[in-house]
Design a protein around this nucleic acid. Structure first.
Lengths: 226, 226
DNA sequence: TCAGGGTTTTTTGTTGACAATAATAGGGTC
DNA sequence: GACCCTATTATTGTCAACAAAAAACCCTGA
């Protein structure tokens, strides 16, 4: 149960955080229509801050709102999820290139340490797809911020990842190919460490493309119904 | 003076539109700190809907808000503007590729007609940088929607373009190279008409890169201080 | 039994008043 | 004269009541 987490600066922020995590974790299912008073009682809020948070979430595309007709959590179709990966491919490719040019040596060392930690996690928690997904998220997060491109990081972290994570929680994207994904991550970090932006971009694009194809395959197999 | 435009469905939508256009047109200058009551009286709103709109604008990065300290229009530095163009390069490249694959023949014909209209505008309104910029916006708008990638179009039209347009209004990006830009546009449409997605992506990326270099040059010359 | 229209009810949109917080200005002290 | 502390003030954050709109329901008539 996603709680209010660290004390938010304002009630609206709190509402925003609560709702966002509730949507991402699936506590609020896609397609679910939900009234404002219901939400208020569930998260201990009043309607003022709630509505402000709803506005933010709507503009981020996590929920849709028809005037006088209530809010409803967005339901992303399989096709739309694949489109999201197309966007990730080019944006994270750029992030990797800029990260290679701009990350500090210290940040790169931390990134490598992160991968070591992921490796241990994969060995230990064999099959614990959840933690693998979190590790994957951590990796991409670091590269996005390492790009030193504030808007790029904002769009990736604030927009795309939340939508992708919505599905991570129920389909565990990289499941079935954790070692493969880790090897791809290592290659990308290697390119970044060598300050080879062009290669880092190429490898990142290929990495995300592989993830997309993996999902596409699962959908075709009928394993994954969205 | 951009007015409330088509009747908004709700007061909050109205507030959102008003503020957004006010920021884009420079009616609300970057860096300007402005109180809520001031905004209310200026746009004939009450604070409820206003605050909802402020939340949306904040999450889009058009303004920043410190608790109990008021809102302030975001001011993008020259370096950040150039970073925006890096993002545009990869995202619009993708949009062009997908547009080449997915636009209908009719849409392509309309796109070509749009360019003809732009050509006439350039000849007639020689130096009217404003209309040229609008024409440029129209072109990119059509390709973004033509990509049939809802999220991509949303991010481009809802996020990036507003920030770029903020500066269009005072520096008229493509000024000095309208004929050149038009020729680049024509080549891109040609590639789309031939359903050559790879080429369309390449040309679009080069087109935006050229625009970025143009701005960079102006900044170095000191013509453009941001 | 089904369709249409009107009424009720629920839910959202809006408003203005109240409370809390931070910026500011003033006074006192070093 | 400069600095710090305090009190004021203005502004934001929050709340609960009111108004409007849409959805649901029921009743009537064919």
């Amino acid at each position: 149960m996603a709680e209010a987490t660290l004390q938010s600066q304002t009630r609206a922020d709190e509402a925003f955080d609560c709702l966002q995590t509730a949507i991402v974790t699936g506590e609020l299912a896609p397609g679910e229509k939900i009234g404002e008073v219901e939400l208020c009682s569930r998260f201990n809020l009043t309607r003022g801050p709630l509505r402000e948070a709803l506005g933010r979430l709507e503009s981020r595309g996590l929920l849709v709102r028809r005037p006088h007709a209530g809010v409803k959590v967005v339901s992303v179709s399989a096709a739309e999820l694949l489109e999201l990966y197309r966007i990730r491919e080019v944006m994270e490719g750029l992030a990797a290139r800029q990260a290679a040019e701009r990350m500090t040596d210290e940040e790169i060392a931390e990134l490598q340490a992160t991968l070591d930690s992921h490796e241990r996690m994969i060995e230990q928690a064999q099959g614990q797809a959840y933690y693998q997904a979190e590790g994957d998220y951590d990796f991409h997060h670091r590269i996005a911020t390492g790009s030193r491109n504030a808007k790029l990081a904002q769009m990736l972290l604030g927009d795309l990842y939340y939508m992708v994570r919505m599905y991570r929680y129920r389909l565990s994207t990289s499941a079935g190919r954790p070692h493969l994904a880790l090897r791809e991550h290592r290659r990308i970090v290697e390119a970044i460490a060598q300050r080879d932006g062009e290669l880092a971009e190429f490898l990142m694009k290929r990495h995300i493309n592989a993830a997309r194809i993996n999902i596409e395959k699962k959908i075709e197999e009928g394993v994954l119904t969205i």
